[in-house]
Nucleic acid binder design. Structure first.
Length: 644
RNA sequence: GCCGGCGUGGCGCAGUCCGGUAGCGCAACCGACUUGUAAUCGGUAGGUCGUCGGUUCGAAUCCGACCGCCGGCUCCA
């Protein structure tokens, strides 16, 4: 009789042949047995430590989502005879399953599938596990080519270690899947779910293999959890920078320009200028020099840098000037900065050189990858190249880390997740260079005391990099900052300096972009703030809503005074009601609005309305202006409250 | 680039399945009202229905190609 050690330390004896689930509390949907996740139907032999897995726990949700994926696959196979199923894992917030379907399906089919799934839940079908030989599994799933391929490839990657000759099948009614499990005991144990979207996905993620139909769903332990998740999704949609960009009149993507090319409207222009001024000035303070380079360059430059070799398909097509020269729009700024370095003979005393540019580059990104400002074809990088001696490298990298944290703190981004990316398949430079570069970045990271993870093979073709991912106001992670260490370009461009030994040496180059690109960073900020920018970034800072026509002049006088103090003002002189003007201010997310009528003019003090609709009465105008000027210059994240 | 969806005045949408020569709301403009913290009332103007081609007596509607957008996949120096 197997003896079970329960989480509270008590010992329970399990009658022979009884599943572990029979002794666990009712809410559990799986069990952790001796550290391994198992079905409730699992029967341990001998002594074992068991722990119930609750549906709402991370492990429970994983099981729940995976089981929901199975149920959906069965429903799809019921509804579309001849459907072939490929893989269907649990993912963050839900699950998906990939199918090859006899005919295309559309969004309206999702509700059909949903209905079928709910019927199956009512029928309370069990999830039954069978351990069979590989040959048997191949037999049972003979009409499922994707499953057969998986079975044949099992163990290939990690040798014999994976499962030996035995594999497990899970059966739900007449539907069988190759699966390691575990699963919930039966369909009635599933939680709340919703099928969300339909998408294409390549089999095994490989472009050369067939495109399958992927159905996504989200699944949770309870209906409340599901609804909370759907609310979060709605919240993210509400913040979509593409919608807000239109609503707030910040930028647009005219079709005539081509995909991924934006124009910034006056309001967006103010926002962007604020951002630019801030980073530019900060760079000047930190010993960077501002440089400037053109948007085009001859082919030879890109041949030397290696871009035509490695990234030609991601560059805008070549321009022929008819005079024997070919030009490319620049996809990167680095070669220009290299040429600035090379414009003169350099000595060790000149180093480090920190060349900085808000450089607009053009990348011919694949159409399907474009996504508003977050992924555009024309983008302006806050791009700097630090050219230094090897012995200066670690200090320079640490300086970049510090600047990174300072800038992001300004926007309320904290606790970055940091990755170190190492040598990719497509790489230039010899192994010694790579080792040196990775060593420097590792050394700087260890010196900084920040935690990081290593992403093998994710580096740039010319060198390894450290990326910073920051979390926004609703918890999403954004890859923003990148710091790249490069021994390759100095070699390719034959960069040199004269050392104190009067010998010639090769400098090292650090590529770094802290915001990433102004476009992408702006998109992230718009979503982060949901369009309600802190005062210093806000296109307009103080709005006036005259009660009647006769108050317009007074508003203009006040606005002129505020403008003289450096505030950005707007007088709403439209012939509309006060209610309408307030609404308009609210929709434009104007930080502060003054409704100005007889009462206020007489009193010489005003009621200030902020974005949240809070009103502060009797604020003298001078006091208001001073407070707003202070709020803007401090780059404060929270709004000023006007006390009396 | 691939799979699916979509494209109708500045914006948001209806009409498309079952072809008969465009409609609503907001915005704009004009007029009345002169208003006190999220939409005052009335009127006017604005669209060769993404583009090109085909079917048809007739196409926003059916078919094809292309362009663009959205959701994914893949990619991301």
């Amino acid at each position: 009789m197997p003896r079970l050690t329960m989480p509270d330390g008590s010992i329970t004896e399990l009658p022979e042949g009884e599943p572990v689930g029979s002794v666990l509390p009712k809410g559990s949907i799986a069990a952790r047995v001796d550290g391994e996740l198992r079905d409730l139907a699992f029967v341990p032999g001998g002594d074992a430590a068991v722990e119930p897995v609750d549906a709402a726990s991370d492990e429970g949700l994983h099981v729940l989502r995976h089981s929901t994926a199975h149920l959906m696959a069965k429903a799809v196979c019921d509804l579309f005879p001849g459907a072939r199923y490929a893989i269907g894992p649990a993912i963050a917030d839900g699950f998906y399953y990939d199918f090859e379907l006899p005919s295309p399906i559309g969004p309206s089919d999702l509700s059909k599938i949903d209905r079928r799934m709910r019927q199956l839940i009512k029928a309370n079908e069990p999830y039954l596990r069978e351990d069979v030989s590989r040959a048997d599994a191949r037999d049972r799933l003979a009409d499922q080519p994707y499953k057969v391929e998986i079975i044949d490839k099992l163990g290939d990657e990690e040798g014999e270690a994976v499962g030996g000759d035995e594999v497990s099948l899970y059966r739900t009614g007449d539907w069988v899947d190759l699966c390691m499990g575990p699963h919930v005991p039966s369909t009635a144990k599933l939680g709340a779910f919703k099928l969300t979207k339909l998408a294409g996905a390549y089999w095994r993620g490989d472009e050369s293999r067939p495109m399958l139909t992927r159905i996504y769903g989200t699944a949770w332990a309870t209906q409340e959890d599901l609804e909370a998740h759907l609310h979060r999704v709605e919240e993210a949609e509400r913040r979509d920078h593409r919608k807000l960009g239109q609503q707030l009149d910040l930028f647009s993507f005219p079709e005539e320009l081509g995909p991924g090319l934006a124009v910034w409207h006056p309001r967006g222009g103010v926002f962007r200028k604020q951002l630019e001024d801030y980073v530019r000035n900060l760079h000047l303070e930190r010993g960077y020099d501002i440089v400037q380079s053109p948007h085009l360059a001859r082919r030879v430059l890109w041949d030397t840098s290696g871009h035509t070799d490695k990234f030609l398909e991601n560059m805008y097509p070549v321009m022929d000037d008819g005079e024997g020269s070919q030009y490319f729009a620049k996809p990167m700024n680095c070669p220009f900065h290299v040429l600035i370095y090379k414009s003169s003979v350099r000595s060790y005393r000149d180093l480090p050189m920190r060349l900085s540019e808000l450089g607009t580059v053009y990348r011919y990104e694949r159409l399907g990858t474009l996504h508003g400002l977050l992924r555009a074809r024309g983008l302006t990088q806050d791009d700097s190249h630090i050219i230094c001696r090897e012995d200066q490298l670690i200090d320079e990298i640490l300086g970049v880390f510090e600047l990174t944290l300072e800038i992001h703190r300004t926007f309320g981004f904290a606790d970055p997740e940091i990755t170190l990316s190492t040598k990719p398949g497509k790489a230039v430079g010899d192994q010694a260079m790579w080792d040196k570069a990775i060593g420097a970045l590792t050394n700087a990271l260890d010196n900084s005391g920040m935690a990081y993870t290593v992403a093998e093979g994710e580096g740039a073709f010319y060198g390894p990099k450290v990326d910073f991912h920051f979390r926004d106001a609703i918890g999403r992670l954004w890859q923003l900052t990148t710091v790249q260490c490069d021994f390759a370009l100095p070699e390719r461009f034959d960069m040199r300096y004269t050392g104190d030994d009067n010998e010639r040496h090769r400098p090292v180059m650090v590529h770094r972009a802290i915001l990433g690109s102004l476009e992408r960073f702006s998109g992230v900020l718009i979503e982060h703030y949901a369009g309600a920018f802190p005062l210093w970034l806000s296109p307009e800072q103080l709005r006036f809503a005259p009660v009647a026509d006769r108050h317009v002049d007074h508003c203009c006088t006040l606005a002129t005074a505020a403008t003289a103090s450096g505030l950005r003002t707007f007088v709403d002189d439209s012939k509309e009601s006060v209610g309408k003007k307030i609404r308009a201010a609210q929709l434009m997310k104007a930080p502060y609005t003054l409704v100005v009528g007889d009462r206020d003019i007489e009193a010489g003090a005003y009621t200030v309305r902020d974005r949240e609709g809070h009103e502060t009465p009797d604020v003298p105008f001078d006091e208001l202006v001073d407070a707003l000027v202070a709020e803007a210059s401090e780059r404060r994240l929270t709004q000023t409250r006007f006390g009396s």
